[in-house]
Amino acid sequence: MSTMKNRWIALYVENQVGVLAKVSGLFSAKSYNLQSLTVGTTEHEDVSRMTICAICDDVTFEQIKKQLNSMVEVIKVMDLTNVPLHMKEILFAKVYGINAAQKEEVFQIAQVFSVKVADIGEDSALLECMLTERRNNELIALLNKKFKRVEVVRGGAVAIESISTSCR
């Protein structure tokens, strides 16, 4: 049995009613462990692209790709696991109940993590982050450790293959 790890797929699908349900339904029906799934239309309005992250071993991952491929609504399955890529996840974090000194701390954290302070209140601050999923996890862990009340919403990662060096 190979190791369980995060695997990434870019999935091109028909932009139609029910396709998202069908893809996500596959993961629940077959007990595959879905980590994140994002979807949006591509440059062609009749095609959507999903970025899917699943935690699984090699054998299961092969199955997932085959099962996705066999769906009529799936146009293309791309395995991004071992491909150089650009990946970002959008995240908003609201920190509550902070005094002036703590606000200062929030600004410092924002600077270190290269994220934007998007809004500010009397005793709160809103961070807007566009980081890798991992970096976002670290940020949340840090905020949770430092402050009493943090509210987080995150969008799931989107990924695209890097431009090959030979094309530069």
Binding site: Q16, G18, A21, K22, A29
Partner: peptide, 27 residues
């Protein structure tokens, strides 16, 4: 019914536009 049978059909769809009917039956 399309939702209910999603995991037990090879393909399932609701025809939402008359112009698609012929193409969908052929599919």
């Amino acid at each position: 019914i399309v939702g209910m049978t999603r995991s037990i059909t090879k393909y399932g769809v609701t025809v939402r536009d008359r112009k698609d009917l012929g193409r969908i039956i052929k599919m």
